[in-house]
Write a protein that binds this DNA or RNA. Structure first.
Lengths: 131, 131
DNA sequence: CCACCTGTTATATCTATGTTATAACAGGTG
DNA sequence: CACCTGTTATAACATAGATATAACAGGTGG
């Protein structure tokens, strides 16, 4: 999977890395169990330091998106699926975004449409356990 | 409006300040044209430095949520309402959140419900003073 | 056993950012 | 005139982000 870092961004490199990997999982460009490049290989590809990649992997491991097998290295893992906990984790960030959206004059309908559209892009036609 | 800063948070103080003021506008605890405390007064109330408040005000001014009148000082302003631009600004952050939500097993319906619920809290925030 | 790969840890260094502190300035109010 | 606004300019300090070099434990395949 191609990783692109914006070095002029005010967002930290390791944070951009985390976000892009999570985005990769959400859009099925990365699938469950898929092996990630080693910290040294990924660092070389992007042109950054090994420790910066390691920091991203460590965070993703703590968040439950990545696991490490001593034999294979780091790989994608989306095992943990506690719905209540997941909502709680997402809710705080969502409040910040929705507040800004509302201040900018966007209606609830605007945001529902935006969520709908983005989620469809992620699903890409693939049906999930929508109940 | 009461401002509460979490000094143990990894989020910068000026960022927390920005978010809470935007949240205040979204929930109608701050209304259009309302005067904000001066940088020195706000700094004293919270117990932080004047420049940290000034940084927050400066950012909010650049984002279009605050204007400055030489006579009165800083006040809330929600004049700018370009829908296309607003959506574009919100969309990037929304993609990051929705990616994480999807990875955690949350469905589109889950997120639509969450948006619906939070937006209702904002709209009804005039009456419910439970916060 | 050996070379080579994994993640991990330990330092040290450099830079950028966040925060504080002190001070001054221009403009507006009473 | 004293007193309030925001704004700017310094300097100082702490923390975080990123880099560099090095080493270690564990696993793989020759």
């Amino acid at each position: 999977m191609l990783i692109e870092i914006d070095f002029s961004s005010d967002e930290a490199i390791y944070q951009q890395l985390c976000n892009q990997i999570i985005l990769g999982i959400a859009t099925s460009r990365l699938s469950d169990g898929e092996v990630l490049p080693s910290v040294r290989q990924m660092a070389d590809e992007i042109g950054i330091n090994m420790h910066t990649v390691n920091k991203a992997y460590t965070i993703l491991r703590q968040e439950g998106f990545v696991k490490v097998d001593r034999r294979r290295g780091a790989f994608v893992s989306v095992g943990d699926r506690n719905r209540e906990r997941a909502i709680r984790l997402v809710e705080k960030d969502m409040r910040v975004i929705l507040a800004e959206a509302r201040c900018r004059g966007l209606s609830k309908q605007d945001m529902l449409m935006l969520v709908d559209r983005i989620y469809d892009e992620y699903d890409g036609g693939i049906r999930t356990d929508d109940k």
